[in-house]
Structure formats: structure tokens, C-alpha cells
Amino acid sequence: MKQNKYDDSGFFEKYSQMPRSLGGLDAAGEWTTFRTLFPELRGKKMLDLGCGFGWHCRYARELQARSVVGIDLSENMLERAKAMTEDPQIEYRRLAIEDIDFAEGEFDVVISSLALHYVERFDLICRKVYHCLAQDGTFVLSVEHPIFTALATQDWYYGQQGEKLHWPVDNYHEEGPRLSRFLDNDVIKYHRTVTTYINALIESGFRIMKLSELQPTQDMLDKNSAWQEEIRRPMFLLISAVKG
């Protein structure tokens, strides 16, 4: 299933008002850690899977990437990305992640930020990314953590006074679709275990270089007390892998 909620005008309007939509990468809590997983981008050709507003594409060019291709299924996303971009070395294409079919070794770096948990066959994407990466190319991705996606409700268990008692985890090993609520809309996310994410990459030929479950730093806690929740349970899983 190829979801495209972002071309629904009401959903897109709500998404456009999110802090990360307004503030860009600096407003994305995982960004500080995510960018540390990137290789040297100078002179590299990069592909962004699910590029959204193109924040990562423009960042790569700021670091002197040779060229960037950003793909997304949403016309609304791509229109916004193009309006925010004045750089002939960034190309945006309307394309589902599932449909990528680039030439062998076409890119040096492939990234994907919080998009692959909407894709049913992660293993197929890994093989396609491996194919289009040059030797020693890097694949960097972030997804919602499997502890976060295991239950479709994606919410705390509350006490009688509305206090957050604990984060429930159930049906963890039962992989597959979860019908969740996001911005007052039903969206389908695909739950996978950490094991599945890692083994899919390894079985496609990648070497895992680094993992992060995004433990908040003291600086993050000082700036935003809401990050205290991320100490109680991880929300993000970030992975860096290399085509070996």
C-alpha cells in the first residue's frame, strides 16, 4: 500500500503547522543525533527517500554535496520543497519509495527520515538501496522505534488522575500493519522488530556501522522538558549502514 495522506488538504494543513514543518531540521528532536550518522557529504551524490519539504536535501548542499535527488509521493510536499529551494543541483521527483529503480551505483549516500515505517516491505527497499549505492556508499535512516509502533494506540497507560504510568508494549513480535491516529487522521504504519530492521540490512549486504535509540541529552532536557518522556521509552531508531 502506497499511502499519500499529505495530498489531503486538511491533513497537509495540520502537518504544515507542526514545529518541524515550521522550524525545519533544528525543530526536529532527532536531528542532532541523525546528522552525526551521515558520512562526509562534500562531492557526494545523495538520494533522499521521502524528502518532504526538502530540508535534508538543502542541508546536504550546504555541506557541498555534488547533487541531490529528493523523492516523495505527495504533490503538496514537492510543491513546498520546490518553493523553498533555489538550487539547480537539487532535483525533486514525484515517486513512491517502493517504486525506486535507479541505476546501479548511482548514489554515494541514501537517507530516509521517518518515512520507512510507512512502507510495507522494508527488505525490498534495502535491496533497492543497496543496488543504487556505490561501493562503500552509506545508507542512513530513521524510523519510529519498534517499542513505539508495537501497539497501534501509540499512547501511554494513564492513572486515575491522568498521570502517565507506563508505556504499554504488546504483540511486539507480531509484525505488520497498525492503524494509528496521526493529526486526527487514520494512517497505516508497519511495525517491525529491531531484529527485522537489522537483519534486513545485513541480508541485503550492508554492514551496520552505528545504531541510536536517541537517548535525550541534558541539553535537550534543559531546552524542552517534554524530552523527559523519551528517557522512559525510545521513540526513534536511527541506523547507519555501509555497502560493503
Rank of each mutant, 00 (worst) to 15 (best):
M209F: 02
T196E: 04
T138L: 13
R42T: 10
D7G: 01
I90P: 01
E144F: 03
Y6I: 05
M77K: 00
E91I: 03
T217A: 02
C51E: 04
V194S: 04
E13Q: 15
S142Q: 12
Q3S: 01
Y6E: 11
L49G: 09
W167E: 09
A241V: 09
A28R: 04
Q215C: 13
G70P: 13
K128N: 08
G52I: 08
I202T: 02
G176Y: 11
A96H: 01
C57Y: 13
F11P: 04
M220A: 15
C51Y: 05
D26R: 11
V129G: 01
G43A: 07
D87F: 02
P39T: 09
G70D: 04
M18K: 06
I71Q: 00
M220D: 14
E40V: 00
E175G: 07
T149M: 14
T196Q: 08
D101C: 10
A28C: 02
L133I: 10
W227Q: 05
R127E: 11
M220T: 12
K2F: 10
T33I: 03
H56T: 03
W156V: 11
E163R: 03
A150C: 10
D184T: 15
Y15I: 03
D99I: 07
R20C: 06
W156H: 08
G23K: 01
Y118V: 08
I208E: 06
C132Y: 09
V129C: 03
K128E: 10
F236V: 00
F148W: 14
F206I: 00
E174W: 08
S204F: 06
I71N: 12
M209N: 04
T32I: 08
L179P: 02
Y197P: 03
D7W: 12
Y172G: 01
D170C: 07
D170M: 12
P216Q: 10
L37F: 10
A115C: 14
D48A: 04
A152Y: 07
S9W: 01
Q135G: 02
R232N: 08
L165A: 15
F236S: 07
E79A: 05
G162L: 07
D101M: 02
F148I: 10
I202P: 05
L25C: 05
R207W: 05
T193Y: 13
W167G: 10
T85W: 05
P88N: 05
Q215V: 15
A200V: 02
K14C: 06
F11K: 04
A103R: 10
K189G: 02
R127W: 13
T195A: 10
E174A: 11
G54H: 03
C126P: 06
L133Q: 11
L151V: 14
D136Y: 08
T138S: 14
I97P: 01
E30P: 00
Q154E: 13
E75C: 12
Y157I: 15
Q64W: 14
K14M: 09
I208C: 14
N185W: 13
L78N: 07
A115D: 03
V69M: 15
A241Y: 01
V140G: 00
M84Q: 09
L179Y: 07
G50A: 09
F102I: 00
C57D: 12
L214V: 06
S204T: 02
L214P: 00
S9F: 03
N199D: 07
Y59Q: 09
D101H: 12
F12A: 09
F107Q: 00
A28S: 13
V143R: 07
P19S: 05
V109E: 05
V69G: 11
Q17E: 14
E104I: 07
Y59T: 13
D8A: 15
A96P: 02
G54S: 09
G176R: 01
A81T: 02
H191D: 13
